[in-house]
């Protein structure tokens, strides 16, 4: 992007080499000053806790509150002890289902909405705001609203279905083992669809009009322009959306499930995810006493799983994505 000719112009008159050197040194000082607050805050609130929780996962607690070195014992318990492994794999599996639903429902809808908005329809700004607003709402409010909507006692969903003659379709979706996880995922999709929409919308807007015009001159209609011109140009953004979905699936899914289905992932652990497993292990649940060390082990496992997913994406996917100069 940078244009060599402007650089020549600005440094013209002085000796080009020394001028450039001076600016670089000054530039470095700036970098340190500007990075310092972020690095400091990030170190104190993110890196230190991460390292500390990795460290804690290698210890075991004694009744008097002191800790004893346990090596990889906690990880062995989590992965191979019948009781812990059952909960762990169930939670991880549920997380993957959650991720899958977000990938096949949330992101395509986000893409569709972004594509429609980028055509600048009437009231486009209003729709954009309305669709984005739920992401700003508290999860507790979203959970409560949807619980009420879907409630068999006070909810409107049965009445609405009845209005179109489909009352027989109604089920207490949040209470059934077979449908609870999907229902919660769709509530989450409803809440967060605004985020991929905004990211993709911004990417679509940054596509220069000349490219679209050129394609049109070449005889492509709107449909083919989208598939052949726009989509390849926003692929890197779709990659970012996918990776954000993957990370959010482990972190953001917790609050919604906790507020709707409780810390035990009711019914019968069918909505139990890594977040709820971590929560009740670390902080305790009713008579279950919180276990800092086992909790730290689960948190570390989540870190590793996210790390593996992100590395996989960076190494195998992102490098192969072709980036076009626009």
């Amino acid at each position: 992007m940078s244009d060599p000719t402007t650089e020549h112009l600005t440094t013209a008159g002085k000796s080009p080499a020394s001028g450039r050197k001076k600016r670089r040194v000054a530039g470095r000082a700036h970098i340190v000053v500007f990075l310092a607050p972020a690095v400091l805050i990030y170190t104190v609130f993110s890196i230190y806790p991460l390292v500390e929780s990795l460290r804690l996962s290698l210890f075991d607690g004694l009744p008097d509150g002191s800790a004893v070195w346990n090596g990889l014992g906690n990880y062995a318990t989590l992965l191979f002890d019948a009781n812990w492994a059952g909960q762990f794999w169930n939670a991880l599996w549920n997380n993957l289902i959650l991720f899958f639903i977000h990938m096949v429902v949330q992101n395509p809808i986000g893409l569709l909405l972004a594509a429609l908005l980028s055509l600048a329809p009437r009231f486009g700004g209003t729709y954009r705001t309305l669709i984005f607003v739920p992401t700003l709402l508290s999860v507790v409010i979203v959970g409560f609203i949807w619980e009420l909507i879907l409630s068999p006692l006070w909810g409107v969903s049965e009445t609405i279905l009845g209005g179109i003659g489909l009352a027989w379709l109604y089920q207490p979706w949040l209470g059934l083992e077979s449908s609870a996880l999907v229902t919660v995922s769709l509530i989450s999709v409803w809440q967060y669809v605004g985020i991929p929409m905004m990211l993709i919308y911004a990417a679509l807007l940054s596509i220069p009009d000349e490219l679209i015009d050129a394609a049109r001159v070449d005889g492509l209609n709107g449909w083919w322009i989208f598939w052949k011109v726009k989509l390849p140009l926003i692929l890197p953004t779709l990659g970012i959306v996918a990776i954000l979905t993957y990370i959010g699936n482990f972190t953001a899914s917790f609050d919604l499930i906790y507020s709707i289905q409780g810390a035990l992932g009711a019914p019968n652990y069918s909505t139990d995810v890594m977040g709820t497993l971590l929560f009740r292990t670390f902080f305790g649940q009713q008579l279950q006493i919180g276990d800092t060390y086992m909790g730290a082990t689960i948190a570390s496992m989540m870190f590793f799983i996210i790390l593996i997913g992100v590395s996989f994406y960076l190494v195998l996917v992102q490098r192969r994505l072709q980036r076009y100069e626009m």
Partner: peptide
């Protein structure tokens, strides 16, 4: 309810399972 799995947590789940016919 001193050990893991926790009997009281278990009792929540299995009692609800009986109600849910699970």
């Amino acid at each position: 309810s001193r050990g893991e799995p926790n009997t009281w947590n278990n009792m929540w789940t299995v009692s609800a399972n009986v109600f849910n016919d699970a």
